[in-house]
């Protein structure tokens, strides 16, 4: 495993825990897109179907279990425990606009026309765009709380670090995964605007506000 990937995975874990911590301590899901979290939950479940059929390492299995359980817990907190605080009125992005294209693309572009591989490809494509409802919500409300900004930064950094990992693996191992790389680049590009605002505002101690 490359250092870039380890850093990426840790950034991913940090993002997930930051979000759970924010919702749990403030007892509020305000400013968080339930739709994005619901789609991330779908991403983990459809990707890690291989949890019991293909063993990679204790590290891999542990992370998979962690991602699935933390994601289910997040969705539970938003839609059940702290449902009253969830800002559904501002969470208006239509999930079918990304789920349907991701499914169609997975049926066309996959490594084998089997249930497991189509499910895996669907998961990769959906992950690339699952953040859209959250970014849409930040744009619509015009701002994000600092901890939400840190969450988005850690989540965006994760796939960016994976890109460095893929470059490293291509040169040193000849490893090349076109589906993951293409989706990973799209995913990272979607965070572009946010990264800019994060560096120019949040890092300087200001709240993240989207200009009208």
């Amino acid at each position: 495993m490359t250092l870039f990937r380890l850093a990426g995975d840790l950034s991913h874990v940090l993002a997930i825990l930051l979000l759970l911590y924010k919702i749990w301590t403030t007892k509020s899901a305000a400013g968080i897109s339930g739709k994005t979290q619901l789609m991330f939950c779908m991403v983990y479940v459809t990707r890690y179907l291989d949890l019991f059929t293909s063993f990679i390492s204790v590290y891999n299995s542990t992370m998979k279990v962690l991602f699935i359980s933390a994601s289910v817990a997040t969705v539970y907190l938003i839609y059940f425990k702290f449902k009253a605080t969830y800002d559904g009125n501002h969470d208006t992005f239509r999930m079918e606009f990304v789920i349907v294209p991701a499914l169609i693309l997975a049926l066309i572009w996959n490594y084998a026309f089997t249930f497991f591989e189509i499910s895996w490809a669907f998961s990769i494509f959906l992950e690339a765009v699952a953040i859209l409802p959250q970014l849409f919500m930040v744009t619509k409300t015009g701002e994000a709380e600092n901890i939400t900004s840190h969450y988005l930064f850690a989540l965006g950094s994760y796939r960016a670090l994976y890109i460095l990992n893929w470059i490293d693996r291509y040169y040193f191992e000849g490893h090349w995964d076109p589906i993951a790389v293409t989706a990973g680049i799209v995913q990272t590009v979607l965070y572009g605007d946010f990264f800019y605002l994060y560096f120019t505002r949040v890092i300087k101690g200001r709240k993240l506000q989207v200009l009208p």
Partner: peptide
């Protein structure tokens, strides 16, 4: 196997 290649990343 069912997989064309092993998905060894997360």
């Amino acid at each position: 196997g069912r997989f064309v290649k092993t998905h060894d990343e997360l």
